[in-house]
């Protein structure tokens, strides 16, 4: 009989084995899903076995968009409902995302990277390190060049800050150079990447940062 005390030691402890887990958070509409769509192309080129978990707030729309995009096997995209609260499911209680990520590890033995997209939230949104190894916060120039100055916990604490929609800067009267400078300064020089996730500009730099931060070590 398999008794209750027969516990495989490797199953306990605080850090799970399996694919690296990378979080992508940021305000509503900043381009998180667009960034993932572009990243998937780069990751596929580098033959990195990837899966995605979305935390859509109200529907499975982002998950459907990624499945239909053709850049990933649709079965490798899971949608986890956030119970009306995007930050609970990535921070206060990440267990539903943890079991989804565990499930992907079990299903795909070769899995190297699981990307977790948070539902759109506010500048205070942050990922728990119980859930991810490393995380990105995406803001966009159209949200205003004062966003970095507001020093939201998401902007300050993330491992990589992505400033997206650089193509829109001239149209919304944003001085991109100054916005990036301020972002670097509030982050004490920690990395900031400026992207256009419609054209794919600079997304390779984001893929490089992920590879270097979480894949090289494995």
């Amino acid at each position: 009989m398999d008794t209750i005390d027969n516990i495989p030691a490797a199953e306990t402890g605080t850090k799970p084995l399996g694919a690296a887990r990378v979080g992508i958070g940021g305000p509503v509409g900043s381009g998180k899903t667009a960034l993932i769509e572009q990243l998937l192309v780069h990751l596929a080129k580098r033959s990195i076995s990837t899966a995605v978990i979305t935390n859509d707030l109200v529907t499975a729309e982002d998950a459907e968009r990624l499945r239909k995009g053709g850049a990933i096997d649709p079965a490798r995209v899971l949608a986890v409902e956030a119970g009306a609260c995007p930050h609970t499911v990535i921070r206060e209680d990440p267990t539903l995302n943890i079991i989804a990520a565990d499930q992907l590890d079990r299903l795909y033995r070769d899995l190297e990277l699981t990307i977790i997209e948070s539902g759109g939230d506010n500048l205070a949104s942050t990922f728990s390190l119980d859930l991810v190894d490393w995380w990105i916060f995406v803001i966009d120039v159209a949200g205003g060049d004062d966003i970095p100055r507001k020093r939201g916990p998401g902007v300050l604490q993330c491992d990589l800050l992505v400033v997206n929609k650089v193509d829109l800067a001239p149209h919304v009267g944003v001085d991109l150079g100054r916005m990036l400078e301020e972002a670097r300064s509030v982050r004490d020089g920690r990395p900031v990447v400026a992207t256009n996730c419609r054209s794919g500009e600079n997304v390779a730099a984001v893929a490089d940062a992920i590879a270097e931060a979480v894949l090289v070590a494995r």
């Binding site: 398999d2 005390d5 516990i7 306990t12 605080t14 267990t95």
Partner: peptide
């Protein structure tokens, strides 16, 4: 999943 990480007896074998 939470208890597996804690190492609560029985959690890992039931998982």
């Amino acid at each position: 999943a939470t208890h597996v990480r804690f190492g609560t007896p029985g959690a890992a074998s039931y998982r």
